[in-house]
Design a protein around this nucleic acid. Structure first.
Lengths: 74, 74
DNA sequence: TAAATATGTAATATATTTTTGACATTATGT
DNA sequence: ACATAATGTCAAAAATATATTACATATTTA
């Protein structure tokens, strides 16, 4: 899709709060450790399902973990 | 990832509210019309970016358009 | 300081999303 | 009745997300 905004996330912050390792998060959610690493380093935009799973694990909302900053808006 | 929940959405409702056609939504967001059709028919879980774009277009939150129902939770 | 655990990188393979294009059907307007 | 717009289906290709494996480097802890 058209590149319209930038996705950032607070994954490592929420992970630290819970004291989980990346491997532990991966296992709990059922994805690979690489997926968690890549997400924390902002390598790509996850599926909405994965975003919901992470939000659920960290007992918060999708938009608390992930932020979307539209370009060219003020 | 592990199949843990079911994703549903209210896309057609929000689209109707704005009076947009599927093609118009597709064009505004910069994706193909097929993508919108498939999403409305719940064919797959969109990228988080696309979810944010739709939320922005409909001036609402991601979780107002998309719902994630965990299985085996009450 | 040695062992164990956590984080990171890279390459390749597989799965899923998204695009493209062609065509069918239904609804709307003239 | 005809034209046009909206919705839908299908299949194949392209793009992107995720898995897998193997190895490297930090960091923690016994």
């Amino acid at each position: 899709m058209k590149e319209q905004g930038e996705l950032t996330n607070q994954l490592s912050v929420f992970r630290a709060k819970k004291g989980y390792s990346q491997a532990e998060v991966a296992k709990r959610i059922g994805v690979s450790r690489q997926t968690i690493i890549s997400l924390e380093k902002n390598k790509y935009s996850p599926s909405l399902k994965l975003a919901f799973e992470l939000a659920h694990l960290f007992e918060t909302g999708v938009e608390d973990i992930f932020q979307y900053n539209l370009k060219g808006e003020e």
